[in-house]
């Protein structure tokens, strides 16, 4: 009987090694999500997300947006995460009217469109400074205009480090911030991030999540910049 066990452990050990080698083959492309999507409804937000992701609402997502001098006031926030460095944070903010927006020496905007673009830039910059405080070693790689569900938006790509109390276990991450106005007084921040080696694979997943995003009752939309 012992000979049978000996044969079994030797054969199984060889099999385990073979499977691990097969799994570690970098040419074997596997989808990062299973393709099974579900509806998520949290607070003001409803969207489609892969089943591997879980949605949370908590105060941590505020990320200092209700600081005294912040140009925006947090309305609602949701985290849809798969892990510590894979997920998306969506935040709805309201522009504060009690603060003077922009510097005094800035030239006056010629048109409402220019004014809207300047406000968008200011909100985006304010959120980026919040992210610099929230994430260690944040480095912006690119900022460019983009569109979200047809609305004009700003996108900044960045890299950051997910810190661990054992510095050896710090892990890099890559992500982006999109700021899109949804009404005259409201804007949406979309922060998506993933491990750098999987960023390209997660991009279409996040795009689909953003494209299915809807704001529930309470949001107002206008023709000057926002969603239908």
């Amino acid at each position: 009987m012992l000979l049978l066990y000996r044969f079994l452990w030797i054969a199984s050990a060889l099999g385990v090694a073979a499977v691990m080698i097969m799994l570690s083959n970098p040419r074997a492309e596997r989808p990062v999500v299973s393709g099974d999507w579900a509806s998520v409804q949290e607070g003001r937000f409803s969207l489609q997300a892969p089943r591997e992701f879980r949605a949370y609402r908590d105060a941590l997502t505020q990320m200092g947006m209700n600081k005294p001098n912040s140009p925006v006031q947090l309305q609602d926030a949701v985290r849809i995460e798969r892990g510590a460095r894979t997920g998306m944070k969506i935040t709805l903010v309201t522009l504060r009217t009690d603060l003077q927006m922009g510097s005094d020496d800035a030239p006056a905007a010629a048109t409402p469109d220019q004014n809207a673009a300047r406000t968008l830039q200011q909100i985006h910059t304010a959120q980026l400074s919040n992210l610099r405080e929230a994430y260690a070693d944040l480095k912006e790689t690119q900022t460019r205009p983009t569109r979200v569900q047809g609305a004009p938006a700003l996108r900044t790509d960045f890299t950051f480090t997910l810190t661990h109390w054992v510095p050896l276990f710090n892990t890099p991450a890559q992500g982006y911030l999109i700021t899109v106005p949804v009404s005259q007084s409201e804007a949406l921040h979309i922060i998506a991030y993933s491990p750098p080696h999987q960023f390209q694979q997660y991009q279409p997943v996040y795009e689909r999540m953003v494209n299915t995003l809807k704001l529930n009752a309470g949001a107002t939309t206008t023709a000057s910049g926002g969603w239908e």
Binding site: L2, Y5, R6, S12, V16, M20, L23
Partner: peptide, 26 residues
């Protein structure tokens, strides 16, 4: 003998699980 008895079945179960993980990681 104890180790061989344990790993004879334990590694076989592990191998089956690894094959399943490769098939359905979710």
């Amino acid at each position: 003998a104890k180790l061989e008895r344990f790993f004879g079945v334990g590694l076989l179960l592990a191998l089956l699980n690894l094959i399943f993980i490769a098939w359905r990681p979710d």
